[in-house]
Write a protein that binds this DNA or RNA. Structure first.
Length: 495
RNA sequence: GACCCGUUGGUCAAGCGGUUAAGACACUGCCCUUUCACGGCAGUAACAUGGGUUCGAGUCCCAUACGGGUCACCA
């Protein structure tokens, strides 16, 4: 193995946007490649033209880039092993399929889909695993030919099936699961390698492509385990060595415990959605990498570079990883706090505009205001869209103080504080944090009221909330006019 | 149903025959503090069950239970 080049691939089918599970597969392959100074390749598996969606491929690549991945070969930047789309490789598959037929390792099958379905139905009813039963079983050459002629006459076009070797064991040393083995008789019978239209099926195309592209290691989801013996048979039929396989546990939903279903709405599943909500790409990369893999130390926040350095495929977990939303938020918050002010600013501002709280193309003054606002909330944000919710006091109008807040200021000292404060505020020259703080201190000196009895009335009067960020900052952001107006309202209410 | 695989606190997860069974998230308490958040400190809490093997088992083996994956002319 040491003398062989390391080449791994991520091979999405362009049937939709980048799913979190696929992103994870891509990341682990990427990490493995970069760690071992190998190549990371992207191949598009689009043999099922019916299921392809128009922007599937670009969307996949886009989101991968957003996550910070880069690759050495792909449809966009082909290497020496192209084409990198399966739909463009038919001229490669065709002769290979023919070769298997010629060698008697594959054959034409005339069973219709209806017949197949009926067969499976009957098998299910009997409680056996649904599988294809050899349609020419026990026939002489003549009988067989007669049957084929009959099918042809009926207009049935054949598919090509691979003749599965009988009573053979297929086993491999899985890079994450250890030794796994299957009996050839239990894999569902002779499987289809070419469809009616002549295009190869997945199990055939991957083998050919992985071999031709000299892929050395394949990391993929657990859901491919049962495909592996089929693929090994094809490698065997051609006399090729198969790559090393590693099957990673799936991501499960924390509350159902099942494989993430695209319909599960308790979890956001597509990378694009995280992007839209203003999550940070590095944080997402970090979070996803920790899904089913763990570093040696006790820390959990690492950069991509650090992950590459310490990546070890032996630490991939065998048991499924539950998607923990709380952890996602925590990790993202760690990144928000340590991120460059400008990055956070840029992303958060976009969210403010998107929500309609700030007009698009804001002027310099507004941008400056936003900068202050965002800094006030930076410590507690996980993703940028939260700014709209967190800072709602600055965007919404409200009339009455109520509930606990009202109780808090229903006393003799509150009006005194508020009157004094509002008088002083009117005369502040530069309405900023420093001056506001000074003013609050002055109120304290003048009224001899301090602590909670001093701060709370001001906070509640200005924001109508008991909780919020630092008061001077908050007041500065609210602005003098609005602050005075709110104080006056409150005064009227408790008088 | 058959075939594969898994099972350490509420969640993720170290551990690879001898440990006081790490750490993180969450939770609770305390501190910081005008409040919230951040931060700091402390705490509750786990080896699915039953048999072996062994001087000794979370770690190895076998059952059982539970959970998951796969059984397409999809990938």
């Amino acid at each position: 193995m040491a003398n062989k080049k390391i080449r791994v691939r991520y091979a999405p089918s362009p049937t939709g946007h980048l799913h979190i599970g696929n992103a994870r597969t891509a990341i682990f392959n990427y990490l493995f490649a970069r760690k071992n100074k190998g190549k990371f390749i992207i191949r598009i598996e689009d043999t099922d033209t019916k299921r392809n969606v128009g922007d599937g491929e670009t969307s996949q690549l886009d989101n991968l880039k957003w996550l910070g991945l880069d690759w050495d070969e792909s449809p966009e930047n082909p290497g020496d092993f192209g084409p990198y789309r399966q739909s463009e490789r038919n001229h490669i598959y065709k002769p290979l399929i023919q070769q298997l037929i010629d060698e008697g390792k594959a054959y034409e099958s005339y069973m219709s889909e209806d017949e197949l379905e009926a067969q499976r139905e009957e098998q299910r009813a009997r409680g056996v695993m649904p599988h294809y039963e050899y349609e020419f079983a026990g026939m002489t050459e003549d009988e067989k030919q007669a049957k084929i002629d009959e099918a042809k006459a009926a207009g049935i076009k054949p598919v090509i099936r691979f003749a599965v070797p009988k009573n053979k064991e297929y086993k491999w040393d899985d890079m994450v699961k250890g030794e796994v083995s299957f009996q050839s008789n239990t894999i569902g019978g002779d499987f289809v390698i070419a469809k009616v239209d002549g295009t190869p099926t997945y199990n055939f195309a991957v083998v050919v492509d992985d071999h031709m592209m000299e892929i050395s290691h394949v990391f993929r989801g657990d859901d491919h385990v049962a495909n592996t013996p089929k693929q090994m048979m094809i490698y065997e039929a051609f006399g090729w060595d198969h790559p090393k396989f590693g099957h990673m546990s799936l991501i499960t939903s924390a509350d159902s415990g099942k494989k993430l279903s695209k319909r599960d709405e308790s979890i956001i599943q597509f990378i694009e959605q995280y992007r839209d909500l203003g999550y940070l790409p590095d944080a997402m990369f970090n979070f996803i990498t920790l899904l089913g893999w763990s570093p040696v130390g006790e820390d959990e926040i690492y950069s991509k570079k650090e992950f590459i350095k310490m990546y070890d495929e032996n630490r991939l977990s065998k048991s499924p990883a539950a998607f923990d939303n709380k952890k996602l938020e925590w990790i993202n918050n760690q990144y928000v706090k340590s991120s460059d002010e400008d990055i956070v600013m840029d992303l958060a501002l976009r969210q403010l505009v998107k929500a309609g709280n700030i007009q698009s193309n804001p002027d310099a003054l507004t941008v400056e205001w936003c900068r202050k606002l965002i800094n006030v909330y930076k410590q507690q944000m996980s993703y940028m869209a939260q700014i709209n919710e967190m800072a709602s006091v600055f965007f919404e109008d409200f009339d009455q103080v109520s509930g606990e807040a009202l109780e808090e200021i229903s006393n003799d000292t509150a009006p005194v504080v508020l009157k004094e404060f509002s008088e002083l505020v009117k005369n502040i020259e530069v309405f900023d944090t420093v001056e506001i703080l000074k003013t609050i201190k002055t109120v304290q000196k003048n009224t001899k009221i301090k602590g909670r009895q001093l701060w709370m009335p001001i906070r509640i009067a200005v924001t109508h909330e008991m909780h919020g960020p630092e008061l001077p900052e908050t007041i500065e952001l609210i602005g003098r006019d609005k602050a005075l107006k709110h104080i006056e309202q409150t005064l009227n209410q408790i008088k």
